[in-house]
Amino acid sequence: MGCFHSKVIKQVPGHEDPVILASQTAFTVSEVEALFELFKSISSSLIDDGLINREEFQLALFKNRNKENLFANRIFDLFDVKQKGVIDFGDFVRSLNVFHPNAPQEDKIDFTFKLYDMDCTGCIERHEVKQMLIALLCESEMKLADETVEAILDKTFLDADVNQDGKIDRSEWQNLVSRNPSLLKIMTLPYLRDITTTFPSFVFNSEVEEVAT
C-alpha cells in the first residue's frame, strides 16, 4: 500500500469537531484547537462544565467576577447564539470569527448593529444610545451634565439618522460606519492571528492526528 496521510478525529464530548468549525470560519484547525485551550481556561474558571457562563465571561474580561458591565453583558448575549444562558465552544469560535482580521466587513457591521440595538427592534433608538452613553460615563467615572449628553445625542443623530425618523436603521448604520471606520475598530482582534503561538499547548491536546495508513 502506498503511504499517505489522512485525518483521524478523536471526538471529545462537549464541543464541536474542530475540522467542521475550521471549515465554517476563517480559522485553521490548529487555530480552532488553540481557541479550545482559551475556551477551557475560561469555561473552567468558576464551574468546570465545558460552558462559559456570564460570570466566567466577566471574570475573563475584567479579571473581576462581580464587575457588572452593560457592554460585556451585550457581547455575552450575542455570543450566546442559542440563548441558553451559556456559551458553548461552537458559539465561542463562530462569534470570535467575526472579530478575525479577515472576517467580512459586513459581518462586523451586522454584529455592531445588533450590539447597539439592545431592544432588538431592528433600529438603534435614541434612548438606547443614551443608556449606553450613561453606562460608558459611569464605567469611566466621567461626569457630564445631562445637557451635554443630550448635545452629544443631537450631534450623533444629526449625523446618523439621515431620514430623521428618530432612529438609526441598518442602512443608516452602514452609512455612518463607512464614514467613520473607527467605529468598527472594536470588531478586529489582531490576537486572533497569533492564537496558536499564544496557546501552544493545543499541540499536546490535539484531536486531529496525522496518521500513515
Partner: peptide
C-alpha cells in the same frame, strides 16, 4: 477632544466591556 464634539458611538466604543483583547491576556 471634547466629548461634545464626538459621536456617541465613538465614546461608547471606548468601553472596556467592548474590548475583547483582554480575553487573550493571561
Amino acid at each position: 477632544i471634547a466629548p461634545v464634539t464626538m459621536n456617541a458611538f465613538e465614546l461608547i466604543s471606548t468601553s472596556q466591556g467592548l474590548n475583547l483583547s483582554s480575553l487573550f491576556e493571561k
